[in-house]
């Protein structure tokens, strides 16, 4: 990556991040004001939130400004936006969210079998025997360790509700 390119990526990333935190900080400060500031001698619920929010906004504003002025030197360390695999991330996140939602109604064992199979197969396709065996073994091991060993209150779902 050339210096110019790196600089441009960094500028963009820091601008987005800085803007986000400026907005977030201001919002928190506003929430703090709503909660009541009290006085310095008798701080209210919102006093700390108010000042912390303002500090956050102020400091992010500084990063915004320095982002424009900064030299590109340190950019390579982190600003790796190339070759992003959005699909993999989206699949993993969506699977976890669906799993969390399904855990109680469906129950631990079926939900976990499906979760593990999807994670093994959809992200970086493994041969089917690895997928099935992997899902079966991990579900069993986790069930034995957590439910039978430690007595975790894992949801029974369909199996237990009768």
């Amino acid at each position: 990556m050339s210096g110019q390119q790196a600089r441009r990526t960094r500028l963009k990333a820091d601008t987005v991040g800085g803007l986000f935190w400026v907005a977030g900080g201001l919002w928190i400060a506003w929430e703090g004001r709503e909660l009541g500031l009290g006085t310095l001698r008798d701080p209210g619920s919102g006093l700390i939130l108010f000042w912390v929010g303002l500090a956050m906004a102020a400091m992010s504003a500084v990063t915004l400004v320095t982002g424009f002025l900064a030299r590109p030197a340190a950019a390579g360390e982190w600003a790796d936006w190339h070759g992003l695999e959005w699909r993999k991330l989206a699949v993993v996140l969506a699977t976890m969210i669906v799993y969390a939602g399904a855990l109680e109604p469906v129950g631990f064992i079926p939900a976990t079998l499906v979760l593990m199979a999807v994670l093994f197969r959809a992200v970086e396709p493994q041969p089917w025997h690895v997928v099935l065996l992997g899902a079966l073994i991990t579900t069993t091991v986790v069930y034995v360790v957590f439910k039978l060993g430690l007595g975790t209150q894992l949801p029974d779902g369909l199996l237990g509700a009768g």
Binding site: K147, L148, G151, D156, L159, G160, G162
Partner: peptide, 15 residues
């Protein structure tokens, strides 16, 4: 009685 065994008995009763 373990949870597993218990679950099994309930399942059997239900069936």
């Amino acid at each position: 009685m373990s949870a597993l065994a218990r679950g099994g008995i309930y399942a059997a009763v239900l069936i």
